[in-house]
Amino acid sequence: MLSTIVQNLLNALQWGSFYALIALGYSLVYGVLLLINFAHGDVFMVGAYIGFFVATFLLTQAAGLPGWVVLAVTIPATMALTAVVGVTLERVAYRPLRRKGANRLYVVITALMAGLILEHGNLALLGASRKKFPELINEVVYTVGGVSFTNLKIAVILAAFAVFVLLHFIVTRTKIGMAMRAISYDKFAVPLMGIPIDTVIVFTFILGSSMAGLAGVLFAMSYPVLEPYMGALIGWKAFIAAVVGGIGDIRGAFVGGFLLGAVEILVVAFFPSTFRDLIAFTVLLVILSFKPTGLFGVAKTTKI
């Protein structure tokens, strides 16, 4: 009994780690720009593909390298390249609109469309055939007291926690983190204080996109089938997780991600697995109905 609970808890933590990593990207961008970056789920997908290409390239060009070396090169390279994708998106699509002072809604539509372009551009370039992610490290299954887990699962969970600690440190303890918080607090006063607002925004996108790239590689290693639409559903769900936690707050995204993971694993444990989305979304709807600004969100009062 206890082992079942612990087993499910581990599964929930792993599944929630992916949501949390992606939700962090949503939350960071939203916190700074008040922009729902709907393309973020597809940036995650692009990250997984970049990871696939980097890993395959290394395995074929430098055959004989041990798997862990390949992995050690793949992860930073993927994070960097995914960050390039995210920043390009910001430079090409979002910044011109921001410069014009366009309504936030138009930026959101642009983000939605950018996501569609990423999805279908991938489909057009690479075709509909699924890609299989190469196995980089041997999965070792440990069994402790009836609870079985793999080294990969532990690595995913640890990575998520490490990322959270790092981001929390950056946002709360560093100068650039302070600038990020300042922009979300008052967008108009910040440039007057001599803070380079565009640099800070680019930094935010680098952070968010590289986390999505990391999530992409880890996801592709855990579930090694890549397809262009993999980012859509998980992206929407991660966004919902971010909102349930209270979007704009790092802790909120983290807790929301794990909460969503836990709900989904619980549902699968007790119901047929096709009920997963139905019940997960219903639970989230109920949470939002009672706590409209999310778990960590602070309600803003409206001034007349």
């Binding site: 929407w236 966004f239 909102v243 009920f275 139905l278 979304f281 939002l288 109905s289």
Partner: peptide, 24 residues
Amino acid sequence: RTRGDYLAIITIAANYIVISAVEN
């Protein structure tokens, strides 16, 4: 009680709820 981005989520969630209810 909700507006803006939070309501957007609720509508997305409602869409998914309907779709997966039909699927089941």
